[in-house]
Design a protein around this nucleic acid. Sequence first.
DNA 1: GGTCTTTATTTAGTCTCTAAATTTATGCTC
DNA 2: GAGCATAAATTTAGAGACTAAATAAAGACC
Lengths: 408, 408
Amino acid sequence: MDKTATTPQVLRRANLAAVLEVMRASSAVTGTDLIEATGLTRATVIAVCDDLIRRGWVRELQAPKGPGPQKGRPARYFAFNDAAGCVLGLDVGMATVTVLVADLKGRVLARTSKRFAKEPATAAQRRATITHAVDQALASAGLGHPAVLAAGIGVSTVVDRHGNVAPGHRLAPYFDLGLQTEVWKEYGWPVLLENDANLAALAEHWCGAGAGVDDLVVMLAGERIGTGLIESGRLLHGSSGGAGEVGTLELVDGVGSHDGIARLARRWGTELLASGEPTLIRDLVGPGTTRVSARFVFEAAAAGDAAAADILERIGRRMARIIALLGTFLNPELVVIGGAVASSAAMLLPTITAELPRLSGTPPQVAVSGLGDAIVATGAVRLALDYVEQNALGLTPAQPQQDPRALS
Amino acid sequence: MDKTATTPQVLRRANLAAVLEVMRASSAVTGTDLIEATGLTRATVIAVCDDLIRRGWVRELQAPKGPGPQKGRPARYFAFNDAAGCVLGLDVGMATVTVLVADLKGRVLARTSKRFAKEPATAAQRRATITHAVDQALASAGLGHPAVLAAGIGVSTVVDRHGNVAPGHRLAPYFDLGLQTEVWKEYGWPVLLENDANLAALAEHWCGAGAGVDDLVVMLAGERIGTGLIESGRLLHGSSGGAGEVGTLELVDGVGSHDGIARLARRWGTELLASGEPTLIRDLVGPGTTRVSARFVFEAAAAGDAAAADILERIGRRMARIIALLGTFLNPELVVIGGAVASSAAMLLPTITAELPRLSGTPPQVAVSGLGDAIVATGAVRLALDYVEQNALGLTPAQPQQDPRALS
DNA sequence: GGTCTTTATTTAGTCTCTAAATTTATGCTC
DNA sequence: GAGCATAAATTTAGAGACTAAATAAAGACC
């Protein structure tokens, strides 16, 4: 069954991985640093480093430090070769696609966004737009297709823990595009699909308001409302990937804000739905609601409009309800609010924090995301990086074009 | 930081663990079986087995098989030595304590239950009762204290993922007894505390209705109501252990069944609360409710009493509500109902399954536990076994008294 | 008894690690 | 500039653990 097959080479693999992990955490290390961090001998550490250099995952720095007062033979400095390849982070939404290209430390090298042709675009059209955006992003990063070691993709539908789009969901047809099997087959990229809210959670856990918080929920509120759940540092999916899919949740006080929006429309005499903008729809405001631009409502409320303020109040109470239930069932330390509402979520916070203690015995802290509209794509980068880090020793790093002089 | 310290001996450890795991899964194996299962060479496999025999974790069977038509040199047969020690599984409730003694395969060797002196027993009294029950159980299993390799304890309060009783909880003082630091310090037993509903989940996942289901919720309903959450085969705790603590959840239709119970009491003219019996209280029926014997309500309903039927209906709706929320937030494949209501939960199932699809887009399956009132103690055994399996090679198995003839 | 088959054991060789001795590269001192 | 001190790198010897191939053992069958 298990085929553990533990040969002596497995030892070396483990030590390669351990050293690589230390290197990823800091910018440059000496052999002595590695001895301390791993507990291995100097001889072993050096052998492992040379091995990693030969494999392309590590490079040796030539002019390592400032002119400090140093004694003894100068140390060799090693660093994780973050240019050994790159990863893609995609946010594929209903209307737009965003692509990030990042190096192996996660630094963004290029960013592209594209709008899909028409609202009901065919799968082929969507695939073409996505691939075009990827090509453009790679080109502007100065990288070729072979440099890509993995691609993470966030989609607005249910995805199970094996990365398969759940077939039953209403939105599944828009996102089950078979990118790995059809378009990108020739490149051989590992393609990792994940729900957008889950990726938002990965992003916040990595470099956002939830950094270092291992029991974390991120609430992605905009067109849809979804939550990404992290417990003990791990994403939760549930049996078919539906964990955190609170869009279907019927809450008592969410009904009937249609009046408010209609009044808003009469009062301001304007098109409520600016095409392509982040919108709020019924998941958030309540059933039976017209789509409305998020920016518009927040601006109206800021200008003192009573109907808009009422909508905000309603949204705040609805979110408080959901957060309270999350607190009861999952007991996260922190809930981060992201997505379209994040830019103005400060207006919602008072309502939410006022309601919470009444609704839950273990209310979590609430914070607002600072990652903006790249939150999902950033999480997709993290997902791809996780894959690369996990499978590094099984992958072949993309060797950069060698300097011919180095060969003489 | 990490101190991976990967010496060649680590290899052997890994292979010891791999072989041991294979042996735990089946009753007796030959060298050839192990070669297939692990991918190691015969020479290595035999060396590992001899090593394990020397350490006491494995024993060699002398008369291995029935008289089958066998060719070639007869194989040696190895088996996991399930008598290399035992584990304790405790269910410490408000009124009673239950102790299971099990061998390393999980077979129950002895069982004891004791009632605590008075309802408001002091911590010292409770400790004494628990220790007495343990001693009695060990004695009736014919084992001494050194045979115990680990003790799992289920308690009716919040416990975080490190096994510490959360101090804030209302019931914490009854369960934060410091057994490992005070009473059992001399024995050096690893003591593993865990919430009772979580242990019920472990039990169902191990050998109950949820066997093989890796996304599972167990709802322990009786005096309190609590849920144990398993996602991808792992228990969820949340940041402070409060995950699944739904007792504080206020649901709209749970209020005001006091009338029903009062009517029941008038009608049947009996003491509703049989002392020490499993009871249903406000967590389940609703706030403002007298405690009432679970058995009594179910019997009355079965006899056609309308007020009792009304209570059951109410309980069913309340549980359906909770299960629906669990389905939405966690998307388990299955919810198992256990605890005091389990024995008659078949009467609740129709109400629950009728309500569920209306309340959740991803309704889980619902089943009733068959593990009876040992569900928590069984889970405690599983918890202790998990610990032993994880740390086997670091523990010293209890050597049984050697047969003197074997030494000649 | 001889042969066949399967298992167990032995032997030689490889890989990886540690520990200790040795070499190397640099700064500092005289 | 020669010599010394120092820390890093390398070399060497040795041990543990594995594989692969040869050899030995134990029973069944003729």
